[in-house]
Design a binder for these strands. Structure first.
Length: 587
RNA sequence: GCGCCGGUAGCUCAGUUGGAUAGAGUACUUGACUACGAAUCAAGGGGUCGGGGGUUCGAAUCCUCCCCGGCGCACCA
């Protein structure tokens, strides 16, 4: 079942093209995708507009005039079409009968939560990996944008018929973890009294969040770790600390409505020999070799260890240079385990993958895509969504963060101050490849300038009508059973029709968002829909006949309420995907 | 030096993946509450879409060359 009423028109057009090709009226070297209906920006240009004449008249054996007449006649045969006109530069514009909009309300309310979500995934597996911050401390605001974008994409995929795994890749094997262990060990020694002063100049992680886990370890083991060899105590410190920090991270994520299905350990790839096997595979494909990398241009007068190392031929895949898989201490690079991780995803049945990365990792893109292509013989499809950084402001002034001084703003702090709804919505209220300014003072404002509030207010207003309804003794309830099959033809104000049209675009927005992986489109759509609703509301202020509840007129009230019910359905669906609450009352 | 991403109204930003006279918010000016929540709405002015060239029926969008800003560029992640 398709909930997008516009599909029908595109299909009609494409069938028509095929017919014309078969009859040799047009040449067959055209791309059907380019011939389409669009919703004109200017409503004076109809409800739908097609470029078919513009695109096809050049490859047609008919004259422009003959061809236009033919197309117009054909389009006039569509049941829902009221009139067809040839416009200025060669567009053909359709004006649709109002019945199509009325059936749209009925569809929305009948389908409820499923309206707009076409099954494009067909149960195909998709792996969405996001956040994946190093387990060395709590999440800070910089992680937040990718987290929300990834989560929204995952939600959408799920609703559009994909079988989604939300994943977090845990880098529990690299050098940063060793630094983390050193930091905890230092605290442990202080606690057990074996170190007196806290000369911690060479300690990388100085955050107080490490104190509880240190105390936990001390309570558990006492001073026993001091008698163990390094391998033994490192292992204990590592396991306890990572467990502990992951617990903090999971709690932080839960506060912004995020729960991953899988936390995947980098270490497991090493323990299971998957990493080694992957490198072997690449060697067998002749994609690894020993070579010396040229000195990077950026390095001037700094010591550069020009040495031979094992490299992956990422230049074969468009990268600037080939990339090392082993470090100078002989251990593997992060890149090497990343190859194994992505191959592991593929082997778990995910030939479709999406990764959400910060823009600072953009340089990493080609080698990862290249290596995945190499090791799966091009059978895996990886999309990488890059998101730009978030700049924090308070009252228009930038808030400084410094990792060195251990002064970073955590997600926890932001949620406590502005709430999950505002945070999530604002993270999506910018396209992901543009930098985002996040102003604490603005997102708590209760005005049109704050889109979160504006959309939620629209939803709450609808339910204020449903509460008001009880005072009128019209014997109607605000639910589908009572509102279905209303006399929709009573909805004939321009603004009412405009709103229904906007509702009918929802399926298109969802599809486009899925194709582009650009979830900001949903946030903007909800904002626009809310705006149309507020506009209709105020029309009722000026003209009592346009209010939603009309005393003594049950039929009209029912039809108006069914429109409100449809709006509330779509607002709710949209807010659900982006993970923001839909409150029935504001406070 | 190379690569990636941006440059759209005074300011903050959208722009249906090449469509018609480029749109919102904000700010400024002016109007609408005996109320279904005015926390809202209506109206007005405001533009060389960074600049040049190209592709075509048609470009903010695609190609190319410059200018400006952000991020990245061995062994970290």
């Amino acid at each position: 079942m398709s909930t997008d009423i516009f599909n029908k028109f595109d299909n009609f057009l494409h069938d028509l093209c095929k017919k014309l090709i078969n009859n040799k009226i047009i040449k067959n070297d055209i791309k059907l995708q380019n011939i389409k209906f669009e919703i004109p920006k200017d409503e004076n240009n109809g409800d739908l507009s097609t470029n078919a004449l513009l695109v096809l008249s050049n490859v047609s054996s008919l004259s422009f005039k003959e061809f236009s007449e033919y197309l117009i006649n054909e389009l006039n045969t569509i049941e829902e079409v009221d009139s067809v006109e040839l416009a200025g530069p060669g567009f053909i514009n359709l004006y649709l009968k109002n019945t199509i909009w009325y059936s749209c309300i009925e569809n929305i309310n009948n389908e409820g939560k499923t309206f707009g979500f076409e099954n494009v995934g067909n149960n195909q597996n998709i792996n969405v990996e996001y956040v994946s911050a190093n387990p060395t401390g709590p999440l800070h605001i910089g992680h937040c944008r990718g987290a929300v974008i990834g989560d929204t994409i995952a939600n959408l995929c799920n609703k559009m018929g994909f079988n989604v795994s939300k994943e977090y890749y845990v880098n529990d094997a690299g050098g940063q973890i060793n630094e983390l262990i050193k930091s905890v060990l230092h605290r442990y020694k202080l606690l057990s009294g074996t170190v007196e002063n806290s000369n911690d100049a060479d300690i990388e992680y100085k955050g107080e969040y490490l104190q509880p886990v240190t105390e936990y370890i001390y309570n558990q083991y006492g001073t026993a770790l001091l008698d163990m060899n390094q391998i033994e105590y490192s292992s204990i410190l590592r396991d306890c600390t990572i467990d502990f920090i992951l617990k903090i991270i999971k709690e932080d994520l839960k506060k912004i409505n995020i729960e991953h299905d899988v936390f995947f350990s980098e270490m497991s790839l090493i323990k299971n020999n998957e990493l080694v096997d992957c490198l072997d595979t690449l060697r067998s494909k002749d994609l690894l070799y020993y070579g010396v990398l040229p000195k990077p241009k950026k390095i001037i007068d700094v010591e550069y260890d020009e040495r031979e190392q094992e490299l992956f031929k990422s230049m074969n895949y468009g990268d600037d240079v080939d990339r090392p898989v082993t470090k100078n201490d002989g251990s593997h690079t992060y890149f090497a385990s990343d190859i194994a991780y992505h191959f592991n995803k593929y082997n778990r049945g995910f030939s479709k993958m999406v990764n959400i990365w910060g823009a600072d990792h953009a340089g990493y893109l080609k080698r990862v895509k290249g290596s995945l292509h190499a090791i799966t013989d091009g059978k895996a499809d990886l999309t990488i969504v890059l998101c730009q950084l978030v700049k924090l402001f308070r009252d228009g002034k930038p808030v400084t963060m410094s990792k060195r001084a251990n002064k970073f703003i955590t997600i926890n702090e932001v949620v406590d101050e502005v709430g999950c709804d505002a945070l999530r919505f604002m993270m999506l209220f910018r396209k992901n490849d543009a930098p985002l300014d996040f102003d604490f003072s603005k997102v708590t404002e209760k005005s049109r300038d704050n889109p979160v509030f504006y959309v939620q207010y629209a939803y709450a207003r609808i339910f204020s009508v449903s509460r008001k309804l009880e005072e009128f003794n019209l014997n109607i309830k605000f639910n589908y059973e009572d509102l279905k099959n209303s006399n929709y033809t009573l909805l004939n104000d321009i603004q009412e029709i405009k709103l229904i049209k906007k509702l009918s675009y929802f399926p298109k927005i969802l599809k486009l968002t899925l194709q582009t992986y650009e979830p900001h489109r949903i946030a903007y759509y909800l904002y626009e829909l809310s705006s149309e609703f507020h506009s209709l509301w105020n029309k009722g202020n000026d003209n009592e006949n346009l209010r939603f509840i009309i005393s003594g007129n049950k039929d009209l009230t029912k039809s108006r309420l069914s429109l409100l019910f449809a709006i509330s359905n779509v607002l709710k669906s949209g807010l659900d995907i982006i993970g923001v609450n839909a409150p029935k009352e504001m406070n």
